[in-house]
Amino acid sequence: MRRFVFRRIALALLVAGLGWLLAAAVSLAQGGGGTVLELLPAPLGEVGQKLTLRARLTDGAGVPVPGAEVVFQRDASFMNYESELVLGRAVTDAQGIAVLLYSPRTEGETPVAALFRGNAQYAPASASGVLPVRGGPALYREEAGVRIPGVNVSLLVGVLGTVWSIYFIVVTLITLITREGAKELARIGGEP
């Protein structure tokens, strides 16, 4: 009797295990475990001109994944802070291709990345590449403002210093008035 029970339990466990394996195999067949994101080579861009960034998303079997959101980003730094700058988002079409129009602001080889965050059906995937850009100087300056020789904090301090020096002279004159009054009173022997 006891042996019969053990056999039934072992059989149930075996069936459950086979079921799980079968489900995993089906999932793999649908591509959930092997999503592939590929950043397609970008054409040579020009500073300030729009260019097309493309990324293709496929499942493990190489079947295009449509309707998935792909984020395009690049490394960026602002003051002492470094992070990723999101260039834009696009949704994949029937061929699994996401397209983003982007205007680069600096020349040179800019590292860019595409990112698929994954969903219930497909695992996350990412890809990176280089965006070649040529053209004039950057559309923004690393240092703001125009440096005019002499126009700086020293000028401000100079102007303020002049005004406060005049105040100091005036206060000195007031003390001279006081001293003069005291001297005169001492001379005539009176009191104010």
């Binding site: 007031i174 001279l176 008035i177 006081t178 003069e180 009054g181 005291a182 005169e184 009173l185 104010p192």
Partner: peptide, 12 residues
């Protein structure tokens, strides 16, 4: 400030 109207005080 001890003002008594001397010439020097006026000048200052």
């Amino acid at each position: 400030v001890g003002w008594i109207g001397t010439d020097n005080q006026k000048r200052y």
